[in-house]
Nucleic acid binder design. Sequence first.
DNA 1: GAAAAACATTGATCTGGATCAAAAAATCAG
DNA 2: CTGATTTTTTGATCCAGATCAATGTTTTTC
Lengths: 189, 189
Amino acid sequence: MYQQLAKYITDRIVVNDEQLQVILSYFKALTLKKNEVINNLGNPARRMYFVNKGCLRVYFVKEDGAEVTRRFAFENALSTSLTSFISGEPLTEITKAIETTELVYISRADFYYLLDVLPCWEKFYRNLLEFAYVNNTRRLQSFVTQDATERYKLLLKENPHMVQRLSNKLVANYLNISQEALSRLKSKI
Amino acid sequence: MYQQLAKYITDRIVVNDEQLQVILSYFKALTLKKNEVINNLGNPARRMYFVNKGCLRVYFVKEDGAEVTRRFAFENALSTSLTSFISGEPLTEITKAIETTELVYISRADFYYLLDVLPCWEKFYRNLLEFAYVNNTRRLQSFVTQDATERYKLLLKENPHMVQRLSNKLVANYLNISQEALSRLKSKI
DNA sequence: GAAAAACATTGATCTGGATCAAAAAATCAG
DNA sequence: CTGATTTTTTGATCCAGATCAATGTTTTTC
């Protein structure tokens, strides 16, 4: 159950076995059914999740109720509503399992406790923040500098597995275009 | 010269006077003329800047040469091309002074050296990354969930000083709309 | 302080992608 | 396996905001 997470951590920071066991001991298992939601707008993010199997979808909800996908978390990815996890303020993005999903999670309190007691966890968190920032910026850059076709081509190039694994509807939503628009632009490439 | 930076640091982390002097000793002064550029696409980011007076504009350049503003850094703000600063890869955003601007800066090498030797600097960097991430995410959310008028109203509410201080052209560019579109939507509010 | 340059406004037209609608294809539940 | 739901495709129409153009206004420069 902890094997994938252990590899994830040791791939990113230098950590001895004792420290690793301490870290892992704070993670608990959770299985979600398809379409199950794990947080609610208005509450703060209380956990950070690691995906062993399955896939999470994180999305914003517009005022009119429309959803815009912010990110997917596939196997061996960490996921939380990081802005809320950081600030403690209510979250503005919903996380839902798009298929049956096996997770392990750590509570926000335990996460911050580890930051205080394990210097290597501070390094881990630094790494996590750096990657989250870089990914976020790439996505922002793509939205403000590229049209729908360019965004799709970039996705095909950088994350082909996403296009293979997800329905057109979800891919379109990730690109922030309608599924009709995606269908049309695919037929033109 | 270091007064504003010293306050910026002590407002964010717990640091004794000796540590503070060590940190400040790595910063050097630099004054930019209006429209002077401080980095070039293709090079990695080698410095982090702190604005004492003036204003920096950080922008992406599209394939067709059009510019899209990513961020402004006014007085008492840190600024770098953080994705490049983190990864060491060539930067994808240009930083230009939009007026005569007085800066102090630290080199990337010295910044990382401080991370190794001063635990409080690691905390400082964590804080910096967290805020950068949160701001980035807010901006991404605004772009994917709001139309031009809503983005403008949000800017007016959250950063009225930006609307006051900057030309319509720059405000429009920050909102990723044409200056004509901004002029029209303002007349309708 | 006058000429030049940059910026702001307003009008006309264009366009990428949204929305609405309906049919075809795929997936799911019992 | 079969009917029901969901997804995908294609067509018709619409709209927010872009672009082009012209004029007025402010700022810069010498």
